[in-house]
Design a binder for these strands. Sequence first.
DNA 1: CAAATCGCTCATTTTTTATTGAACTCACTG
DNA 2: CAGTGAGTTCAATAAAAAATGAGCGATTTG
Lengths: 168, 168
Amino acid sequence: MISKVDTGRNGTGTLNPVEVETIHLFVQLSRALGQPPSVAEIYGLLFISPQPLPQEDFLQRLNLSKGSASQGLRYLQDLGAVRTVYQAGDRRVYYEAVAELRNLVNRFLRQQVLPYFEGSGDRLNRIAAEAKKLPADQRDLAIARVKMLKSWGTRCWVWCIPARFITC
Amino acid sequence: MISKVDTGRNGTGTLNPVEVETIHLFVQLSRALGQPPSVAEIYGLLFISPQPLPQEDFLQRLNLSKGSASQGLRYLQDLGAVRTVYQAGDRRVYYEAVAELRNLVNRFLRQQVLPYFEGSGDRLNRIAAEAKKLPADQRDLAIARVKMLKSWGTRCWVWCIPARFITC
DNA sequence: CAAATCGCTCATTTTTTATTGAACTCACTG
DNA sequence: CAGTGAGTTCAATAAAAAATGAGCGATTTG
């Protein structure tokens, strides 16, 4: 991946130095955040592209397989990091990056993190119930910790997601 | 891992239900954040423990290997998620969880994320320099995007890290 | 309607990551 | 100073994750 490089405009199957470096940055970042490299490559390329790109571009310019491109784009779309654009007279679906940090962080927290604190199964409430049954020397701390975990869930919202963004 | 369960106080080699559930929650969370399960298990157990624990406890109660416990604890300590406690009359090192969300997030951002935006190699400045050489139709967007990436680095600080925490 | 295009799915393969445990160091202890 | 316990390191192994691509179905085109 990220093998072909040229120095001028991006002909088919090539990446210019700015694209290479940008993609590389996203790939590195993705490691820290536990995201697959192929997804980072896709987002990186879109992030630096002046115009929307069809799937084909990812296959050719990033040397991705059809599967990776398809799944990666879907994942990014679900995450709200990418949106589709319809191009007149072209059957293919074009993609463009949604390049707003706040938006990205919000959605990441909402979709990947919050569920564990507010899962429909209400795991935290179950833990709290169990905690009350513990022997005295463990109970107090356990109850306090569970309360703390609940507050973490709440804090995610308060912290990063201004009211105008809460639409779901 | 997380195999032995009992319902009373935690004898050697066992985990009570609250511990199991808490650990499980952290293990799940760790997936979303790209952290190894063994690290999550260690942190989860410490998080819910009323008193500091020595390495031995992780070997026995979580069934971890010496290597995992040692490396995991070190990793958590480097991250500032765990601190050591000295226990009178015991040669072993005891650990306790640092359970402050802000602290954890700060350190994670500072250590795992920020470096890519402010690396000593100044990757972003190199990208910016390259961007200026691009043909007109790509240059403007590229320059804007690089500026945006720089602002992301800055935003990390402004966002989550009140001045009183910046001590390094 | 046959042929071509686009893109998805998912079983398999490849690659990466995490875990293990034997061998070691260091510091105490009797 | 031999023996023991705590803890680390790191090469080997096991486990998990990511990537691949053949095989589909759906849609368009001539």
